[in-house]
Design a protein around this nucleic acid. Structure first.
Length: 282
DNA sequence: AGCTGCTCCTGGTCGC
DNA sequence: TGCGACCAGGAGCAGC
């Protein structure tokens, strides 16, 4: 479910709900969510206090006392909720952090794809996924020259290349389609054939689009809500995702949906032209 | 090294 | 109404 703007919104909400709360005990109801031994996971967390919630790409980094960090990835449908401990535990609740004040942080995940790992703070770069994660999509971290160099290594289509978190962190299926439409680049164009001008435009649109989506508190298509259960607002700003059959806002031609690398992909067949595919007028 | 296909899960929707 | 096929915002892994 969540891409970078949604994870960032969850992070901001959680800060207000759990900082300075101390864990009394932890209940793991679906062991596969935890990387490693879940008995050790629960034991190590007893008595720990949440000091900060950071984020890197789509990963949440819960900073605890005693130099521990809980790395959490929500994957498709993961959600956090803070509730009274007495509140009924719902069907898809898989991990419960009970606090000493009578409240609890609960992790919900319909499809059970999310993962958590408890590590020593400072060893984040040894965790799979974080090890090779690309730059944050911000002007400070995301350099166009570096982006160009990474794109040159990939002959495959630009769409799945943007979904590769090692190229740039944070894009998922929705924002990948959106930034390609904004940049007027066809999703099937091989990544290593983008012109310098295309790379520059794409780079700038990635930063701008994710910034705007964070300001709108993310995009809610199916099930995403933040830590307070609130939906995002950015779905109102989507130009192609989920709009197959509707006219392109720029040119009026009907938006199409195709499969690219097994993922649903939305684009405008008039604005987003594959180089070399133009039908000659002979 | 890079790419494709498969896998982890549940639930909603669509066609018959 | 029931049933099967297919779809869904992600990413790790095997195998080529």
């Amino acid at each position: 479910m969540p891409e970078l703007p949604e994870v960032e919104t969850v992070r901001q909400g959680l800060r207000g709900l759990i900082l300075n709360k101390t864990i009394a005990n932890v209940e793991v109801r679906w062991g596969k969510i935890i990387n490693g031994d879940s008995a050790k996971f629960t034991n190590d967390l007893v008595g720990e206090t949440f000091k900060e919630v950071d984020r890197r790409g789509k990963y949440l980094l819960f900073r605890l006392s005693d130099d521990l960090t809980l790395v959490s990835h929500l994957r498709m449908e993961g959600k956090y909720r803070v509730t009274p401990q007495a509140q009924e535990v719902t069907k898809h609740t898989h991990v419960i952090f009970n606090f000493t004040d009578g409240t609890a942080l609960r992790y919900l995940d319909t499809r059970k794809f999310g993962r958590m790992t408890l590590i020593k703070t400072g060893t984040e770069n040894q965790v799979g996924g974080l090890k090779t994660l690309g730059p944050e999509p911000t002007a400070a971290d995301f350099q166009v020259a570096d982006f160009a160099q990474r794109l040159r290594r990939h002959k495959k289509a630009i769409k799945p290349t943007l979904l590769d978190q090692n190229v740039v962190a944070g894009l998922g299926n929705i924002y990948a389609d959106e930034v390609l439409w904004l940049s007027e680049i066809h999703p099937l164009q091989p990544a290593n054939t983008l012109s310098p001008a295309q790379i520059q435009v794409l780079h700038d649109n990635i930063i701008l689009e994710l910034t705007k989506a964070i300001q709108a508190k993310g995009t809610t298509i199916r099930s995403y809500t933040d830590a307070y259960g609130a939906t995002g607002g950015f779905q109102l700003s989507l130009h192609v995702y989920g709009r197959e059959g509707e006219p392109c806002e720029r040119c009026g031609v009907t938006i199409e949906k195709i499969k690219v690398a097994q993922r649903g992909t939305h684009f405008c067949p008039h604005c987003q032209i594959l180089p070399g595919s133009q039908v000659s007028a002979s």
